[in-house]
Simulated assay, not measured.
Amino acid sequence: MLIAVASRDGKEINQHFGHADRFLIFEVDGGEARLVDEKKVERYCTYDASHPQRAHLLQAIADALTGCRAVVCAQIGQGPQTEMERFGVDAFVADGPIKATLVEIAKVL
């Protein structure tokens, strides 16, 4: 299964969903996680007075994460979390090493 991760350094889950300008895509299978792709996105946390809800950005992020079962980040607001789940991408808040954490999350998916 594919899981997207918000990470500043590619090793730890250490970035807020809304601050990510890229998501690392890992394939998790058989107790292992390996990096398979990187999706660049426009950051969700930007101020746009004409689009205060920024729904268009969440849709674009969901489109970029097509095929991913979940997204894992250090923090995510309730609104974006609900919207991502509406788009079919489960959102998890976690920290720590990416690969070991994803293997554990995959056990509950």
Results as ranks from 00 to 15, higher is better:
105 I>A: 09
48 D>F: 01
100 A>S: 15
106 A>Q: 11
71 V>I: 15
88 G>N: 05
30 G>S: 10
13 I>A: 09
52 P>Q: 07
72 V>I: 12
53 Q>R: 13
15 Q>P: 05
102 L>K: 04
9 D>S: 07
46 T>A: 14
62 A>S: 13
100 A>L: 10
41 V>T: 10
100 A>K: 10
22 R>T: 05
13 I>P: 08
97 P>E: 10
59 Q>G: 15
41 V>C: 04
52 P>K: 02
86 R>I: 12
96 G>I: 14
34 R>Y: 00
104 E>H: 01
103 V>H: 05
45 C>M: 05
68 C>M: 02
56 H>I: 03
52 P>M: 08
12 E>V: 15
42 E>A: 10
10 G>E: 06
37 D>A: 15
91 A>E: 07
25 I>S: 10
56 H>A: 08
19 H>E: 11
105 I>Y: 00
72 V>W: 00
52 P>V: 09
26 F>G: 05
44 Y>I: 06
1 M>G: 09
101 T>D: 07
22 R>Q: 13
40 K>G: 12
32 E>Y: 00
26 F>Y: 15
92 F>P: 09
15 Q>W: 00
75 Q>A: 14
51 H>R: 15
1 M>I: 08
21 D>C: 07
102 L>C: 06
10 G>H: 04
74 A>Y: 00
10 G>D: 08
17 F>G: 05
102 L>R: 04
100 A>V: 13
102 L>P: 04
11 K>H: 09
109 L>H: 06
78 Q>E: 09
84 M>Y: 02
77 G>I: 12
8 R>G: 12
20 A>Y: 02
6 A>S: 12
49 A>E: 14
11 K>I: 13
30 G>L: 07
20 A>F: 02
69 R>Y: 01
8 R>S: 12
28 V>Y: 02
92 F>E: 09
32 E>L: 11
37 D>E: 11
14 N>C: 08
1 M>P: 12
19 H>D: 11
53 Q>N: 10
87 F>Q: 07
26 F>H: 06
103 V>D: 06
16 H>C: 12
11 K>N: 14
108 V>S: 11
76 I>A: 15
47 Y>Q: 09
55 A>K: 12
79 G>I: 11
75 Q>M: 11
31 G>H: 03
15 Q>D: 06
57 L>R: 13
93 V>Y: 00
30 G>C: 08
44 Y>V: 02
86 R>E: 15
46 T>F: 00
